[in-house]
Design a protein around this nucleic acid. Structure first.
Lengths: 224, 224
DNA sequence: TCTACCACACTACCATACAAGTATGCTAGT
DNA sequence: ACTAGCATACTTGTATGGTAGTGTGGTAGA
């Protein structure tokens, strides 16, 4: 794993971020067992900060701890994924309505710039970059509507979906139409058409039910 | 504080629940300083589980920890309250739409029973009971729509509002019209009128901006 | 061969000791 | 009288030792 010095001040945060990144990137796959001692030796820290990181990961539902038995990376629970997706749809529907009501020119520009890069990434089949730009696009809409904190909360409960997205990336699923949808959404915001914007957003996020079935069949061990 | 034996298995959960209840009930008021050592002596446990409870409370934004300096109960941040309210409005608007589409008779009955008690509590000026019944009412709608987990998530981020509600209880603010609104909502669900139900829910939750101003003036030390 | 039992290795949980940063008040020097 | 600086008593952060519960593999006995 990475070197400690490039991280935050506290050892706890270092361990937490290292583990979370490893889990979300599937470097530590769902179902893998890990122990406090093992990680503490690997990262060359004591068990205390590792334990505290474990607690936070448990809260994020990325880790499952069985007292006196062991811990393992949580399996992806499609019910949880759907609940997170539902919450996200409701939240972002409300947010994009706000965006239609009041959105500064500077944020319009930021979105346009982001979209330009999205098109570029799409034309170059750079799914990884598209993944990042997609996230940034939605974040910008929330930011411009002064709802950054809401967006952060959603992100927090959306970790399971993030792992799914990583899987769908690996399987090269449909990432193309995404850009078109984003463009339509930006047009709606510019036209201040709240109803249309909300509808587009809901359709867009409904698609996040990717090919859950296909993914589950390809990686059965990763699912609950 | 309470005896340990009546709580869950782990010491950590015992400490966490004891502190969280004390904070939300305002027994530990915003701004009050507490230390790991102090709590560990009071509850007669070691510092480790106390510390772990502190970490969880920090994640809930109920506690603020300043390394090497001290910890204090977080002040109520009205911006955070509004963000949580916004998220709750979006979520419950979506949930009540679901309720209009599919809601079993048994849950209709449960809501009716709950409302009966609400009327009783209102007529007896029992604000405390009304507080509990209000919570249960909303929870029932989520449960009946198979969105319990979403409701739990909302609850988790809504802790600041809960403290506000406790304050407004103390000030005997308007708790009467609440029952009427709930009755209208149930009627809309029965009539399967999604649009009306959603509108009612949004209006209802918009009111949760109580008299924030009045509260802030009455308890200035509790706010950020 | 099968089963009951036990020793052992493993886990997370909790207690405690030590380290390091911070605030405060006293004291010595001006 | 005032200030710089240090001792001290706090705080949280980290390390480590011991405890109790759990799974496993081997062994003795039928």
């Amino acid at each position: 794993m990475l070197n400690r010095t490039k991280y935050k001040n506290s050892t706890r945060d270092f361990v937490y971020e290292a583990l979370r990144d490893a889990i979300v990137s599937l470097e530590l796959p769902p179902g893998a067992t890990i122990s406090e001692k093992e990680i503490s030796e690997e990262l060359e820290v004591s068990r205390t900060p590792v334990r505290e990181a474990f607690l936070r990961l448990t809260e994020d539902e990325l880790l499952t701890v069985l007292p006196q038995r062991g811990s393992y990376i949580s399996l992806i629970d499609l019910d949880h994924v759907e609940d997170a997706r539902f919450l996200r749809e409701q939240a972002e529907a409300g947010i994009i309505r706000l965006a239609c009501e009041s959105f500064s020119d500077s944020y319009i520009e930021k979105l346009e710039k982001n979209l330009k890069y999205q098109r570029f990434a799409r034309d170059n089949d750079d799914e990884n970059e598209l993944f990042i730009l997609d996230k940034a696009f939605h974040r910008l809409i929330a930011e411009g509507s002064s709802k950054s904190r809401v967006w952060e909360v959603i992100q927090k409960v959306d970790t399971h979906s993030n792992r799914l997205r990583k899987l769908s990336l690996a399987m090269k699923l449909n990432w193309k139409k995404l850009v078109d949808q984003h463009e339509e959404m930006l047009s709606a915001i510019k036209a201040k058409d709240s109803d249309l914007a909300e509808k587009l957003m809901r359709n867009h996020l409904a698609l996040l039910i990717y090919d859950q079935k296909a993914l589950k069949e390809s990686y059965p061990d990763y699912f609950k």
